[in-house]
Amino acid sequence: MSEPVTALGGATFEGAVTITERPAQGMITIRADLSSAKIVKALTDVAGVAMPAMRGAVTSADTGLLWMSPDEAMLLCPYAESTETVAALNTALTGEHALIVDVSDARAVFRLEGSACREVLAKVTPADLREQSLPVGELRRTRMAQVAAALRFLDNTTVELICFRSVASYMFKLLSTAAAPSAQVDYRF
């Protein structure tokens, strides 16, 4: 198998926060009725983690499940195992109305680290970034300036952000500008 190449080759930026492009991550989009017990069982069996609640995410090491909408979930797995995970999901969901797509190569993942994460993100998204509106662990799909993104606070100073691979360069430049040391406003959330 060929070597996976990320959109920006692991680019990093040091500023108000440290921005890093993450290594390739296996991601599988599942569209199915998440209120069905049979579908939930299939997803949790394959992912090996519990089903997240609304807006939630359950992850452990390399695998996880993200709640994207009432009929959409994203399964995280090691990049090299995405093809067999799709096959396992297709087997587990035989006879169910479901759509399973490997989107690993269509996404880019960034990590922001630093105490100014909420401030930096608030400059480029309309989402309410106060902790009471976006608590740690919750997945928020929103807009970052011109492009769609999903972000999740892993803890109060670490954010994982997923966007389309085609806009990875835009996203990185956008976040770098927002996190430029001279652009800090020291907003207290």
């Binding site: 609304m54 807006r55 909408s69 009432p70 309309p126 989402a127 309410d128 509106s133 928020r140 929103t142 807009r143």
Partner: peptide
């Protein structure tokens, strides 16, 4: 009503 999130007009 599906996600319970308060959304800005520009996300809609």
């Amino acid at each position: 009503p599906y996600t319970g999130i308060m959304l800005d007009e520009s996300e809609l």
